[in-house]
C-alpha cells in the first residue's frame, strides 16, 4: 500500500515551500510529488537525474510529476510504476477542498489515505477567512485538515489569539513553523513501524515506541492517541476486546483509523509508535512506565 497525502491550503500559504523542503530532505524515502506547475518548485538542476516531460527524477529518489489532463489519470498511471516511489503527495490547488482530493485514495486498493495537511499563512488567514469572496473557501480547507501547519508565524502580530481562533475552525492539531521549516517525518510519518525518531527533528519533537506482550485495554491506547500533542501514530495492537485479530492503528493528526486485520499471531507483540511534541509524549511515557 502506498501512503497518499494531500497538501492543501490557500494561495500563498507556503505549500510550495513545504514541497521544496520535502524534495530536498534526506528522508530515506522516495516521494512522488504531484504538482500543477514544476516552475514554482525550486529544483536544483544538478540533482535532476532524468527529465521526461511530465516527470522529473531527482538524485535522492524523489519524483516530481505535473498533474496533466486529470489528477486521477496521473495517479493511476503512477501506480503502474510502483517500484519508483514509496509515498504519493498531491499538492491541491489554492482554492480546492483538499478533503475531496484525499477521497481519491479509495479509488485503488494500492493507495492508503495518509492525511490531509493544510498549510496556513499565520499573517493573513484571519483576514482571508473574513473575505466575502474567499472566506468560505478558506474555512472549508481548515475544516478538512487532519493536521494543520501554521506557517509564517513570524508574520503574525499576536499568536495566542490566532491559535485560539484556529481551534474554533478545526479540531486538527497544529504544528507551527516559519518558512515551512518542519520535521518531514512529523508530516509524512516514519518509513516503517518501529523506525527511529527523525535525526533532524527539532528538540521539541520526538517519537516514542511502546510494546506490550499481553493484550491491551482499548481505552488506554485511545487515551494515548487522543492526547494533545500526538501528531501521528502507527501501530499493530492486540486489544483485550478483540484478541483474535490484529488491530492496525493509523493516525494522522485528527484522523484516527483502527482497522481489523489478519488473525493475531502468537509470536507477535503489540507495538505502537507515536510522533509528536516532546513534553506531552514525555508525560505519556512516564504514565506508561507506572
Amino acid at each position: 500500500m502506498t501512503p497518499f497525502t494531500v497538501i492543501g491550503g490557500f494561495l500563498g500559504a507556503g505549500k510550495t515551500t513545504l514541497l521544496n523542503r520535502l524534495l530536498r530532505a534526506d528522508t530515506g524515502r522516495r516521494f512522488a510529488v504531484l504538482v500543477n506547475d514544476f516552475g514554482a518548485l525550486d529544483i536544483d538542476s544538478r540533482l535532476v537525474v532524468a527529465h521526461g516531460g511530465d516527470t522529473i527524477a531527482l538524485a535522492n529518489g524523489c519524483l516530481c510529476c505535473t498533474i496533466g489532463d486529470s489528477l486521477v489519470t496521473t495517479i493511476l498511471a503512477l501506480l503502474e510504476q510502483p517500484d519508483r516511489f514509496d509515498h504519493i503527495v498531491v499538492e491541491a490547488s489554492g482554492v480546492a477542498d483538499p478533503g475531496r482530493i484525499a477521497d481519491l485514495a479509495v479509488l485503488d486498493q494500492r493507495l492508503a489515505r495518509d492525511g490531509v495537511i493544510v498549510v496556513v499563512d499565520a499573517g493573513s488567514v484571519r483576514e482571508r477567512s473574513a473575505d466575502r469572496r474567499v472566506g468560505d473557501t478558506v474555512t472549508r480547507q481548515l475544516a478538512a485538515a487532519d493536521l494543520l501547519l501554521l506557517n509564517k508565524t513570524d508574520l503574525a502580530d499576536d499568536l495566542p489569539p490566532l491559535r485560539g481562533w484556529l481551534s474554533t475552525q478545526s479540531p486538527a492539531p497544529v504544528l507551527e513553523a516559519r518558512h515551512a521549516d518542519v520535521a518531514i517525518d512529523l508530516l509524512f510519518g516514519l518509513p516503517r513501524l518501529g523506525g527511529a525518531a527523525p535525526a533532524d527533528a527539532p528538540d521539541a519533537f520526538a517519537s516514542w515506541s511502546y510494546e506490550w506482550a499481553e493484550p491491551v485495554e482499548r481505552g488506554i491506547v485511545l487515551g494515548m492517541l487522543r492526547t494533545a500533542g500526538v501528531l501521528r501514530a502507527k501501530g499493530i495492537v492486540r486489544f483485550i476486546d478483540s484478541p483474535a485479530r490484529r488491530s492496525v492503528i493509523h493516525q494522522v493528526g485528527n484522523r484516527l483509523d483502527i482497522v481489523d486485520d489478519e488473525p493475531w499471531r502468537e509470536s507477535e507483540t503489540s507495538r505502537l509508535v507515536l510522533l509528536g511534541l516532546k513534553p506531552t509524549l514525555g508525560m505519556l511515557g512516564s504514565l506508561q512506565r507506572e
Partner: peptide
C-alpha cells in the same frame, strides 16, 4: 466553489 478564484 472556485475553480480559478479571485486570488488567481
Amino acid at each position: 466553489v472556485w475553480n480559478v478564484g479571485p486570488d488567481d
